[in-house]
């Protein structure tokens, strides 16, 4: 009963809201350039499917690439930090500075540097910067959270660094790293969208550009359509990463049944 309600209630609420939206637009005669009816948004999806999906694909491609780059580079730098305190002392202030500087304020500079004709590269760099830090921070925390006794045990058996890395550091850090990776997935998308806004150029051609374009032409229904696609993309990224986390961790990290 409770389980059925958990599914039925959100869907029911969604249907009710959509119905009320359509009713309200008609009843109060809200002009479509303020709030289009749901039907108009559906029409945009059908009529402009090709350009919307093309843009979604562009944004998704850049987000995914930035995300993969962030995971690889963040983990690599965290490993360097874990193996050398000197490297951490030297580099971590720069990593933190890069993180706390609002991405939107770096965007114009990055766009100037790479050139507006390569706006996609600027978007990629900015999305990567956004996603990089949570990976670095979580991987560093994870690598530092290794059980000191296990560390001693590996030393006692004269384990080499590659052995210690593969058998101890990676599995110990994995739960932390995966939490950071989940955050990074969302931030890569946010970074990509913010950068596309900042570039404000047809060269980028992503969903954020579609939103700007539709806004300039007062095609509010199209704005909504692009917005919905972005939200769905965010949900998809989160769901896939959560599934990967569950896949890797549920066996040893999941429920804590224990034999007394």
């Amino acid at each position: 009963m409770m389980r059925a309600l958990r599914v039925i209630l959100p869907i029911g609420l969604f249907a009710a809201l959509i119905w009320f939206w359509g009713w309200a637009v008609e009843h109060w005669r809200i002009p479509p350039f303020i709030l289009p009816p749901p039907r108009a948004i559906l029409e945009v999806f059908v009529n402009d499917a090709q350009s919307l999906l093309g843009s979604a694909w562009t944004t998704f491609g850049i987000t995914a690439t930035a995300f993969v780059l962030a995971v690889v580079s963040g983990t690599a730098l965290a490993t360097l930090f874990a193996s050398s305190r000197l490297a951490e002392a030297m580099l971590s202030p720069y990593a933190v500075t890069l993180q706390v500087t609002p991405i939107i304020s770096i965007a114009p500079l990055v766009i100037v540097w790479v050139g507006l004709d390569q706006a996609w590269l600027a978007v990629l760099i900015l999305a990567w910067i956004s996603a990089f830090f949570p990976v670095l921070a979580s991987a560093t925390a994870g690598l530092k959270a290794v059980d000191p006794n296990l560390r001693d045990l590996f030393r006692l058996y004269r384990a080499s660094f590659p052995q210690t890395f593969r058998r101890l550091l990676v599995p110990s850090a994995l739960p932390y790293l995966l939490a950071g990776i989940k955050t990074a997935g969302g931030l890569a998308l946010i970074g990509a969208v913010v950068a596309e806004f900042a570039a404000a150029s047809g060269n980028t051609n992503g969903l954020a550009w579609r939103i700007l374009e539709a806004g300039n032409r007062l095609q509010i229904a199209k704005m909504f359509a692009a917005l919905i696609l972005l939200a769905l993309m965010g949900i998809l990224i989160y769901a896939v990463l959560s599934f990967i986390e569950w896949l890797l961790l549920h066996r040893w990290h999941g429920d804590t049944r224990s034999r007394a």
């Binding site: 045990l153 058996y157 384990a159 994995l174």
Partner: peptide, 24 residues
């Protein structure tokens, strides 16, 4: 060496934990 805590690798089976010194 036996520590005060069992000091096992939480992600590895009992066998994989025990074989660690030989694996290393």
């Amino acid at each position: 060496f036996v520590f005060q805590d069992p000091t096992l690798m939480a992600w590895a089976s009992a066998t994989r934990n025990v074989s660690l010194p030989l694996d290393l």
